[in-house]
């Protein structure tokens, strides 16, 4: 097909039918593809169609329109699979503490306090360095600082 030059519209149409893993890989095909994928396809194909909400004081739920995943983050079953599958399994069960601008804050509910900030769209996760002075109390919150493109607990 290399002799045929497809328009940007057609390329977009094709890319947006691919799974997240494939489009993430194809970002490095070219600069134009990187733009299309980051700005058009990933937001469009994300299968996370639902919302996060607080149900009790220390528990957040994720409600999905697509696959009836409903329940409390505490028991690990309420998450859509793509959320839990991001994390190292030895720290289960995770608790969903907060969400902000599309990022979510997860933490282990075991004694050892570990927190992760994840982006469910790109399936990226970063571990928060342990607080040296004191262990975070039961309700940490996530805040995005737009100006510095950073987040804080």
């Amino acid at each position: 097909m290399e002799q045929i030059s497809l328009s940007e519209d057609l390329i977009t149409e094709i890319l947006c039918r691919l799974p997240v893993k494939s489009v993430t890989r194809f970002k490095i095909v070219s600069k134009a593809w990187n733009n299309l994928i980051s700005n058009v396809c990933i937001p469009r194909i994300s299968n996370l169609s639902g919302f996060l909400f607080h149900s009790t004081e220390d528990c957040m739920n994720y409600f999905s329109y697509s696959d009836n995943n409903e329940g409390c983050g505490n028991d690990g079953e309420g998450f859509v699979e793509s959320l839990t599958s991001l994390l190292p399994s030895e720290y289960f069960p995770y608790k969903l503490f907060d969400s902000c601008n599309g990022l979510i804050l997860l933490g282990s509910s075991l004694r050892e306090h570990r927190y992760y900030v994840c982006n469910p769209l790109t399936k990226q996760c970063v571990a928060i360095p342990k607080a040296r002075e004191r262990v975070l109390e039961s309700a940490p919150a996530l805040e995005i600082r737009r100006t510095t493109k950073s987040f804080a607990l």
Partner: peptide
């Protein structure tokens, strides 16, 4: 046809120049 393919394969398949 391109879903599970490598980046190099897709560039060749669609005749796309790598500009990175």
């Amino acid at each position: 046809r391109i879903k599970n393919k490598s980046v190099e394969y897709v560039r060749e398949f669609l005749g796309i120049q790598n500009d990175f």
